[in-house]
Amino acid sequence: MIINNLKLIREKKKISQSELAALLEVSRQTINGIEKNKYNPSLQLALKIAYYLNTPLEDIFQ
Rank of each mutant, 00 (worst) to 15 (best):
M1C: 15
I2C: 14
I2E: 07
I2V: 14
I2P: 10
I2L: 10
I3M: 11
N4W: 02
N4G: 05
N5G: 04
N5P: 01
N5K: 07
L6Y: 00
L6K: 00
L8K: 15
L8C: 14
L8H: 14
L8S: 15
L8G: 10
L8N: 13
L8D: 11
I9R: 02
I9G: 02
R10V: 07
R10H: 02
R10K: 01
E11I: 13
E11W: 06
E11G: 07
E11P: 00
K12V: 07
K12E: 11
K12F: 09
K12A: 14
K12S: 13
K13T: 06
K13S: 08
K14I: 05
K14A: 11
K14P: 03
K14C: 11
I15Q: 03
S16R: 06
S16D: 04
Q17I: 12
Q17N: 03
Q17Y: 04
Q17T: 08
Q17G: 04
S18M: 12
S18R: 15
E19L: 08
E19I: 07
E19W: 06
E19F: 09
E19P: 00
L20M: 06
L20I: 04
L20Q: 00
A21S: 06
A21Q: 02
A21Y: 03
A22V: 11
L23H: 13
L24S: 05
L24G: 02
E25I: 07
E25K: 15
V26Y: 02
V26M: 04
V26G: 02
V26T: 06
V26E: 03
S27G: 07
S27W: 03
S27T: 12
S27L: 04
S27N: 08
S27R: 08
S27H: 06
R28N: 07
R28C: 12
R28M: 13
R28E: 14
R28K: 13
R28P: 15
R28V: 15
Q29L: 10
Q29H: 13
Q29V: 09
Q29G: 12
T30D: 05
T30K: 06
T30R: 07
T30P: 02
T30I: 15
I31A: 01
I31M: 05
I31W: 00
N32K: 14
N32Y: 08
G33N: 15
G33T: 08
G33Y: 14
G33L: 15
G33R: 15
G33E: 15
I34F: 05
I34S: 01
I34G: 01
I34Y: 04
E35C: 04
E35D: 03
E35K: 01
E35S: 02
E35I: 03
K36D: 12
K36G: 09
K36W: 06
K36R: 14
N37C: 13
K38S: 10
Y39I: 15
Y39V: 14
Y39M: 11
Y39D: 05
Y39F: 14
Y39S: 06
Y39C: 12
N40E: 14
P41M: 05
P41W: 04
P41H: 01
P41L: 08
P41S: 03
S42E: 05
S42H: 08
S42R: 06
L43P: 13
L43I: 11
L43C: 14
L43K: 10
Q44F: 10
Q44L: 10
Q44V: 12
Q44Y: 10
L45H: 02
L45E: 03
L45Q: 04
L45T: 05
L45I: 07
A46S: 06
L47G: 05
L47S: 09
L47R: 10
L47F: 07
K48T: 04
K48N: 06
I49Y: 02
I49D: 00
A50W: 04
A50S: 10
A50V: 04
Y51T: 08
Y51I: 08
Y52P: 00
Y52N: 04
Y52H: 12
L53I: 03
L53C: 03
N54M: 09
N54S: 10
N54W: 05
N54P: 02
N54L: 07
N54Q: 14
T55G: 03
P56C: 07
P56S: 08
L57C: 08
L57E: 02
L57K: 03
E58C: 13
E58T: 11
D59W: 07
D59T: 09
I60T: 02
I60R: 01
I60W: 03
I60Q: 02
F61D: 02
F61K: 01
F61E: 01
Q62E: 10
Q62D: 09
Q62W: 12
